[in-house]
Design a protein around this nucleic acid. Sequence first.
DNA 1: TTCAAGATTTCCT
DNA 2: GGAAATCTTGAAA
Length: 207
Amino acid sequence: MSEPQTDRRLPRSFFRRDVTDVAIGLLGQRLVRMYRGKRLAGVIVETEAYLGVADRAAHTFNGRYTERNRAMWLDGGHAYVYFTYGMHHCLNIVARCEGDPVAVLLRALEPTEGLETMRRFRGQHARRETDLCSGPAKLCQALAIDRKLDGTDMTRSGTLFIERARGRAYAGAKIVTMRRIGVDYAGEWAGKPLRFYVKDNPHVSRR
DNA sequence: TTCAAGATTTCCT
DNA sequence: GGAAATCTTGAAA
């Protein structure tokens, strides 16, 4: 028996493409997190591409394979969730194929379902709706995403997945391309145009 | 075993 | 605009 959402879920082939194409293609798609029977969801409005072994800003730079980043080495469509700064989680979606450790960092969502629950998870910081998911760690907190979901196959999981959202896609909107956030230590890679977001969308992380 | 630093967010001046 | 919070990771010793 198949559930309605299953038909809308993005297939493996979507994620096995070039990581930059996946990063751009994810804009306008819907991230869904099932939490205790409830749907927490939002449309992706900001992403960053991490190019793997050649990319000094990537966790897999120079072929690094560790306990933390092993999910990045999985097949396209898997989730890579890491913990940083002693308190924050960030969600990536692996692209390409097994053995090619590239991924897309989800930096912001326009929340669409389960806003009350998100507000509860975010606490009193989320005064405005644009405070809920306007940052990589904020969206993880709003959707209760932590390391327990690291390595999840998002093309098969019923807990964390991505739905095609053509009706809400920002196909007609302008996509802005610029340097990535928070990777100034990465030398020449810090300035590469690998951050993408929907122009003028209020949920995009600032700076 | 030790230690510096981090794909961030929030609060304070 | 600047710094604290907070702890895991990864590399060096």
